[in-house]
Structure formats: C-alpha cells, structure tokens
C-alpha cells in the first residue's frame, strides 16, 4: 500500500466506536475523509473496514458486544461498501469479467463483496451474486455472463462439502474455466490451511488466494 496514506490508529478507533454505536453517518464520514486524504480504496477496505470487522468479531467472542451489535456492524459495513462501489464503477474498465459468489449455505458475504469490488478496482466487470449461492444459480450466471474467472468465497470450513459440490459442477460444465478460491475458512492455524492445500491438489481448475494482496498480484499479471 505504498504511496497511499495509511489509516491512523485514532481514525480506526473513531470508526470502530461509531460502527459499534450504529452511527452510520460518522462511519461514512470517516471513510470519505480517508479517501479525501488520498488513501486508496484498498487501504480503506483492508486497514479500516476489514480491521474493524475483525475487531467486532473478537469483541463478540469475548462477550463484550452482543450478536445484535455484530449484525448492526455488518449491515453498516455493507452499506459503506455499496457507497464506495459508486466510485469504482465510474472508472475505466477492460473486457474482463468475474462472477463472484459465496458457496451454498455460506451466509457471511462482506469479504466476498470486497473481492467483487476489488475486481472492479482493477478494471474488471464483476458480478456479485451474494451469500448462499446455489450451484444451479451460479451455473446459470456463468452461462449468462461468460466470465473469465469465477471467484468463490467461504468463511466457515463446515461448508466445504457444498464448496466441493459447486467446484465439481463447474468442472463438469465448464472444464476450462478458472476458479479462484479464498475466504476466512482457510485462515485457520491448521484445519483451514490444510483444507486449501487439499482442494488445490484435488481440483486442477482451482487457484487459492490467501489474501486480497495475493489477488491483486494475480490481477496485475492477467
């Protein structure tokens, strides 16, 4: 993130407090100010929004905030992502398309939304299908959109059977289509990482990305 002003600790704290309090306007103001100062959207996504949501998750785990507060923070973050999307769609695009979706049963979609926005940021047309996308709906979307890649995200490792079913279905109908995979499910100390390695070995169409930074390197090379 060289060349773009970082998000200060003070700014992060103001944003997090506002997020927990449900003060959407203050959150939006922090994001707007950070962008006005010259921070890239990537910086805002990773160093502010993603950081804050990880903090909210930790606070929920420790019983410091309720599940309702966590849901409120998620909803606010989704709204802010939608607001920043407007900036993305106005920039020049190339003839590259990505269909982006959460695997079936997966309900956590904020990270996936960020991935879709990340494609846009790099000039791709992205089609974000959201949480809990069935294999059938995904296949229909691939038929319609004719993407260069499909990006799948999974947050909970117990959704792996649904992920594998989806990968097999894509492989059966679109054997040459590249499938990009990522998500928090694979960030675990042991189980997650191991699962990602197994999946890549099992499905040659699949490429795993550990972070948005890795995805960025990939997009820069395409």
């Amino acid at each position: 993130m060289a060349g773009t002003p970082p998000v200060s600790e003070g700014c992060r704290r103001i944003y997090l407090d506002a997020l927990l309090a449900g003060e959407h306007q203050l959150c939006a103001g922090v994001v707007a100010e950070q962008l006005r100062l010259g921070s890239s959207l990537k910086t805002v996504y990773l160093d502010l929004m993603q950081w804050a949501m990880y903090e909210v998750g930790t606070l929920w785990e420790n019983n410091v905030v309720s599940v309702a507060t966590e849901h409120l923070a998620s909803a606010t973050t989704e709204t802010l992502l939608a607001l920043t999307d407007a900036k993305l769609f106005s920039q020049p695009h190339k003839d590259r398309r990505a269909v982006v979706a959460c695997v079936p049963e997966e309900l956590h979609q904020i990270g996936t939304h960020m991935v879709a926005s990340f494609f846009e940021l790099h000039g791709w047309h992205s089609f974000f299908l959201g949480a809990n996308t069935s294999a059938a709906a995904l296949i229909r979307s691939i038929e319609t959109r004719d993407p260069d890649v499909v990006a799948l995200s999974m947050c909970m490792l117990f959704n792996r059977p649904q992920l594998e079913g989806t990968i097999r279905e894509i492989g059966r109908q679109f054997p040459r289509l590249k499938i990009l995979l990522g998500g928090r499910a694979f960030h675990g100390e042991s189980g997650g990482r191991q699962a990602a390695e197994e999946l890549v070995r099992r499905y040659p169409q699949l490429q795993y990305f550990d972070s948005l930074n890795e995805l960025e390197v990939y997009l820069a090379g395409v």
């Binding site: 490792l157 117990f158 042991s190 189980g191 997650g192 191991q194 699962a195």
Partner: peptide, 11 residues
C-alpha cells in the same frame, strides 16, 4: 465435526 481431521476438531 468428528469427520474432520483432529487438528480441525481441536481448533
């Protein structure tokens, strides 16, 4: 969960 590797069960 017991269908998963021990490391994941532990985690």
């Amino acid at each position: 969960l017991t269908g998963d590797p021990q490391s994941h069960v532990d985690e």
